[in-house]
Design a protein around this nucleic acid. Structure first.
Lengths: 131, 131
DNA sequence: CTCAATGCTTTCAGTTTGGTAAGTACCGTA
DNA sequence: TACGGTACTTACCAAACTGAAAGCATTGAG
């Protein structure tokens, strides 16, 4: 980001087109495969447990799911509530900030479902043209 | 994807939550760092040359830019027009399909700029809480 | 004493990614 | 003959990411 002036003084300005700007990394984060799906699932169900997420996101390894959840928690997008029971019980939920991502991510997810066939066709044409 | 029936017979159904579904990979593609920025830049300027994109996306290597552009072209999101001149002249532009991605990606990009500070704060809190 | 349940955490090895840097092609110009 | 400008392409290597599998902690049930 660069420094910009306003009435009250210098203010940080963020731009993902700038090298090293944290907003670029964030953009990358929230657009990553597992994060999009976790956020989507939590947006849909309101709250979910680890095991349920693992089933919903067919094919995630536990490691990746844990890692994704940790990052999302750290970024303040997801809250993690532990119920001190045996066996363990943990609930994940979108925070207020996480909620604000629902619409944008839903739009993106729907786009991919809606247009995947067009894209597949385009790929076949391209491959035929160039091979 | 799974097979689903309708009045005219079996129809493919796509779901990024399914393991191996091509819509999952597509979602990953269109959400990837450089693709988002290239698409955003082309959406903004209508058309752009290789060297201009390289400048706009501060920090991309030529290799990554070429690679991203090729993938986008293959997927039918971007068109590539070569003007047979010396020195070479190539113009990139969004296709009609690419245009439909402008809004969703713009929303995501703006989200990251708008909320990066909140996220940074959340990270600091998290790190303080857990360290 | 062993097992089951849940949510991790760790380790290992293999794959993929990404950057750097150099090379390619073309042709008009000096 | 060497150089510049544009858009790549290729080779190389280190770092990051991934998945599979096994380990861990806790405690009630059998």
């Amino acid at each position: 980001m660069t420094a910009v002036e306003n009435a009250t003084g210098p203010v940080p300005s963020f731009d993902p087109y700038e090298r090293g700007c944290p907003s670029r990394d964030l953009l990358d984060q929230i657009g990553s495969k597992w994060a999009v799906l976790v956020l989507g699932e939590l947006g849909q169900n309101g709250t979910s447990r680890f095991s349920r997420l693992r089933q919903a996101l067919a094919g995630v390894s536990e490691k990746m799911l844990t890692q994704t959840l940790r990052t999302l928690e750290r970024d303040g997008l997801v809250s993690r509530t532990v119920y001190p029971e045996v066996p363990p019980h943990v609930e994940y939920e979108l925070t207020a900030l996480g909620q604000t991502l629902r619409e944008p991510l839903k739009a993106l997810t729907e786009w991919s479902v809606l247009h995947i066939e067009e894209v597949i066709t385009a790929r076949e044409e391209y491959d035929g043209r160039t091979r």
